[in-house]
Each structure stands twice: as C-alpha cells, then as structure tokens.
Nucleic acid binder design. Structure first.
Lengths: 165, 165
DNA sequence: TTGGAATGTCAACAAAGCTGACGTAATGTG
DNA sequence: CACATTACGTCAGCTTTGTTGACATTCCAA
C-alpha cells in the first residue's frame, strides 16, 4: 500500500492541506470530548476520571501500573483520580492474588453505569460521524490515526488489541 | 453519498468498532500534540500559546473576539496567553482603524519564526501519517473529522475556509 | 447623550498535570 | 537470609490552563 508518487497525487501534502488537517483534528477532538464533558461537569468529575473509567472498563482487573503506561501520566496524578473513584464507590481496587503488591481495578455496578452513560454519549457522536462519512472513510480515518500515534504507543496498543479482540 | 445499509456494511458500527475508534482518537491526539509540546516546554510556553500563535498566523489581523470564538475559552484565559506573547515580542496587538476598541493581532518576525518551528514539527508528523496511509485514507480521515465537529463549529469553520482558501 | 459592546485587568479558585521525597509491603536475587 | 527492587500510596509544592465575578475604559450607535 501507500503507492503513489508525482503529480496531482502529492497535492494533498501541501502545507495548506496539512494545516487544514491539523485544524480539523483540533476541532474534531473538541467535539469528540464535548458530550462526556457535559455529563462529567454535573458530577464534579473531569476528563481524567473518564479516561480511567474507560480503560478500567475495557480491561477489568488491570493494574495501576498498566493504567499508568496507557494513560501516560504520573502515578501521583492518576492516584488522585483513582482515590476519588474508589471513595465514591465507582471503582473497586483489589489486592493481587499472585502478586500482592499489585492492585487490580474493577468497575462497581455504579461505575459501570456511569461508564455506559459516558460512552453512550461518545459513541453516539462517533456513530453519527461514521454513518455520515461511510465505511470507506472510516477505514481511512482509522489508518491515519494509527499512523499518527507515537510508534511505541502504536506497537503496544495494537499488540494488546490482537490478544483481546 | 453515505448509501449503505444492512448486513456486513454495518459491522463498522458495532460498539467494539466504535470503542476502537474512540481509543485511536485518544492516542492519535496525543501523538499529534507531542512534538510541539516538546518544543514549547523548552520555552516556558504551553499548548494554549501554540493555539493562539497558530490561529493568528492563519488569519493575520484577526481580533481578540474572533480568536475567542475559535478557541472556545474565556477572554481572561486568552488574555493571559496573549499578554505573555505580546510582552515577549512574538505578537503585535494593533488598535483597530475603523473600530478602535478592537485589537488586531499579528505575529512579529520572531513570532513567525516560532510558528514555523512549531508547525514544521506538527506538519512533519501529519505528513508522515498521510504518506503512510495514502490519499484515499486521508480523504476519509478528513470526512470523519468534519462529521465529528460540533455542528455550529463545523458551519463556522467551513464557511471561513471557503472565503479565504 | 446614553446604553451597550469590545477590551483589559484584578482576584480567587479548580482541574489536572508535574517533581521530589518518603514509607510500606511484597517480591526477586545473590 | 540479606538486600535490592518493584508496586503502590501519599505528602508537599508548583505550573498551566481553564473557570467566575467584578469593574474600568473606550467608543460605536441609536
């Protein structure tokens, strides 16, 4: 793939086209987070809580260290968020069986309810965008996003996905 | 366009597919901002400064109010950023001719130098992603991003683009 | 001439990131 | 077994970037 060269086919790599892509990314990301943000604001939670909830929901029983690697924040920052979620009864933190230093994280029923509420909102927008653009566009969208990630993040992420999808 | 229904063509709208799109968006956005962030960190500036510089560069002479509408932040927040940029000699704020309440914003030479440095880094990543994915994928990418924006942002943005592109 | 719009600024605060330091428990290694 | 390392939590302090609310100035327009 990616076989194209010369002439018109390179027009989409002009600085102007790239700038438009950059701006589209900025505005789309704002739209992408807008709906969950509105819900979170009513609950005294923020985007950081959403991210934690999302990835715990995706990989129940994940450890704190795993989460740190995926989210790319410091443990102090994540800990602040997790503490709130545990105190509020949205997340359950269980000592590891084989390795008792680890904490395995699970959503409680209440946590799953919030997760559903948040991701329903986000998926609704995603679904609308996918539907408006069509399957071919979606395939391209995913390709470009994948290529835009940091290489090691891409490797790690797609490695995980192959094992659990 | 967007004519498809039933059967396999809807597979790309499963919750699992949507979730993967959501995560790809998260990781890609991080990659998208990583390079400029590294440059900004060496200069005691942040993403907010980058955004202001970007949109002033894109529309020289834009007013503070225009910028507020595009960036979607409060004037206090933007003002803090603009003040720093003006004090550091990166941005020139000129009183409007017809309406002297307005300030028209321009990048100084130094400001344009930084803009180039930042957007070169960001464009390099964008270009690499575009090149890896190919023109068709890029078209789809842009379509999906456009559909993901807030409707009024989309309207405003694409309206502006039609006039000055 | 007066009301309202555009701008700037002060103060106070919150979310969410960071560094650095320290403690504890559990595990791995020599 | 002794010791180093790992996983996690926590305290303190700082930064960036957002928020409200209040208020002054300038100036256009009715």
């Amino acid at each position: 793939m990616a076989e194209f060269q010369g002439g018109e086919n390179l027009l989409f790599l002009t600085d102007e086209q790239l700038r438009q892509g950059i701006e589209a990314m900025f505005f789309a990301y704002r739209g992408f987070t807008a709906d969950p943000d509105r819900i979170l604001a009513t609950l005294a939670y923020g985007r950081a809580h959403h991210r934690a909830i999302h990835f715990i929901s995706r990989s129940p029983g994940t450890t704190v260290n795993n989460l740190l690697a995926i989210l790319g924040v410091t443990k102090q920052s994540l800990n602040r968020v997790l503490r709130a979620l545990v105190e509020d009864g949205l997340v359950d933190s269980r000592v590891g069986k084989s390795d008792k230093r680890e904490r395995h994280l699970y959503l409680t029923e209440e946590g799953e309810a919030l997760e559903r509420k948040l991701s329903d909102a986000q998926r609704a927008r995603m679904r609308a965008a996918y539907r408006a653009a069509g399957p071919q566009a979606v395939a391209g969208f995913r390709q470009v996003l994948k290529a835009m990630m940091d290489p090691d993040m891409r490797r790690r992420y797609y490695a995980i996905r192959e094992t659990d999808t």
